[in-house]
Design a protein around this nucleic acid. Structure first.
Lengths: 342, 342
DNA sequence: TTGTAGGCGTTATCAG
DNA sequence: CTGATAACGCCTACAA
């Protein structure tokens, strides 16, 4: 292990000067700076991260907690966070809880050791002990996508309600009157917001929304699949479905295909969150795309700013956009004749 | 900041005892152990990761370098690595280079500071300076998926050649004689192995493989798209394509769709690497699935073993499997009548 | 079984 | 502009 003292000795200066020279401190002669750098490269000197972290009081690691790194949405957030962090010479440690709250807690507490300078998180859990663990983190905290109840950390999100309202209104414009939603857990504010936009579109259209058309608390492919089956078993099968997120959509699509229904002929499908393969699905899926990469960058940016001492970091709301493909169409002919029963 | 001394004071013991008690050292009375633990929780004591790392000589962070975390293959590897690492109380730092070699180098060198206890990597670069940087890493190194030329670190991979040969033979059995391959960069040993399996299947079938049916060096969706267009412009359009990996497949599919061709009626498509949405694509894509999650676990395991002092860690070869869906079919009728020209 | 004390490699303060 | 030197917080011989 070649240390700073070795470099100092070779360059004929003190360790303090080495530190300064290497950090580009202006109060160092160009001559000595050159000497030091030469010595450093000659010795292949690399400052120890641990020693630096101990001495400076914090690491150069940013954390990202996500429920599932395999979900491309979070992978994109990760990429954005990492790119932005790299610009300030920070690295990222990514922890994925597999949608497991217990694991999430463990991870959280295990990171209270100062490994991380700051943390960006999208959490599944939301109870108090959880909140406590999250705020006990040494460095700044930023929330991504959603904010658990009773939290006050800054959040980066998209305008869920607005974009949903807009997208659903398109469905009404096409003649649909029976639009269902496979929604997420009630505790997710994202679910609330998307549901709210959904309801507003119903109001705008002056249509009645039966409770049975909203399936709460579904998550993942399995959840989407189950919810879709319930929907298809209803006496009045909806003519369109709006899915809470990408994985839920995949599950719903599978159920629809299994039922032998054709999209959009028999039923229209609208997804929240885009996927790179949606354009190639049969049929190409219309989706509301969140700027995941940008959300990651924004989260890193907020963290970096707080790390730089800035206090007044506030929420960021990015626009989501409707990407029209072919999974939306007019309702089946029969439905247009028979409006929804009382 | 509550430190070990605070705990020691509260528990009425020395700092050494605190360390031992908390680590579960058997040479500590149950009584004192209890006292210490009580004090620790009462104070909310969490040992500093930096101090521990400095003192012990290495961190509890495992690194994973991948070209692209948004590619679900690597995301799954990451998940596997993380899960296995967590079992031994290690965390994971994930760095994704965006397929950019320069960035890869930067990342690599920036991690020579001992941040990582060990590193698992799938690299894009392969030159000497690169190899040097990779081996200069403080801790053990494990390669995932492919090994850059002239490296001797242990590798976890799948049996590319064997599974490819098998899959391609299915195509021949269906009556195809003009099977093309969109292959990856020549420096990738994975590309070589898959190509080798591809060639062997041709030999097994006693068919002639024109050079124009192999497109080298394509990567990513853009690469797959370009290569497919070239293939479709050939005088003798192939009746089946084998794609080097998942992203290449997506690009190829897009090109095929743009050309107005129907799969598998006009052309059959075989993918290397599965994707969760392949079953829903039009038509469902037949793919060779690598056990990505298991590969990640295996990589973590090898790292952990080397960290535990084990020396003789050798390559691991996991089985890949052909998942039959609907993108493979007999060649177009016309082709069956007119065998490939001289 | 438990305590004492030195060191891990940097950074930062304070003189000079 | 540069040099000594004291932390940073924990771990671990070694001693008791």
């Amino acid at each position: 292990m070649v240390g700073i003292r070795d470099v100092a000795r070779l360059a004929g200066v003190s360790t303090a000067t080495v530190t300064r020279a290497l950090r580009g401190d202006p109060s160092v002669t160009a001559a000595t700076k050159a000497k030091v750098q030469a010595a450093a490269v000659q010795l292949g000197y690399v400052p120890s991260a641990a020693a630096r972290a101990l001495s400076r009081g914090h690491s150069n690691l940013l954390g990202l907690f996500v429920p599932d790194i395999v979900n491309p949405f979070y992978a994109q957030v990760a990429q954005g966070l990492e790119d932005r962090a790299a610009e300030e010479r920070y690295h990222c440690v990514i922890a994925s809880s597999h949608l497991n709250r217990e694991r999430e807690q463990q991870l959280l507490t295990s990171f209270q050791d100062g490994t991380l300078a700051g943390l960006a998180a999208t959490t599944v859990g939301s109870d108090e002990s959880f909140a406590a663990a999250l705020t006990a983190t040494r460095g700044p905290l930023v929330l991504v996508d959603r904010r658990p109840r009773g939290f006050n950390a800054p959040l980066v999100r998209t305008d869920n309600r607005k974009v949903t309202r807009h997208a659903i209104s398109r469905l009404f414009a096409m003649g649909h009157t029976r639009i269902a939603m496979i929604s997420g857990p009630r505790e997710f504010d994202t679910a609330c917001q998307r549901l709210s936009g959904f309801r507003m579109a119903y109001q705008d259209a002056g249509s009645f929304l039966p409770d049975s058309y909203i399936r709460h608390g579904h998550l993942g492919e399995a959840g989407g699949h189950a919810a879709m089956r319930e929907l298809l078993a209803l006496p009045q099968v909806p003519t369109a479905v709006f899915c809470f997120n990408n994985l839920v959509t995949v599950g719903a699509l599978t159920a629809i295909r299994a039922a032998g229904l054709k999209i959009p002929h028999d039923i229209s499908v609208l997804a929240f969150d885009d996927m790179s393969l949606f354009p190639l699905v049969d049929p190409p899926i219309t989706a509301i795309a969140q700027p995941a990469y940008e959300m990651g960058r924004a989260a890193a940016d907020m963290l970096l700013r707080r790390l730089a001492g800035e206090q007044e970091v506030t929420d960021i709301v990015l626009p989501a956009t409707l990407i029209e493909r072919e999974s939306l169409g007019p309702p089946p002919a029969a439905e247009r004749i028979t409006p929804p029963a009382t």
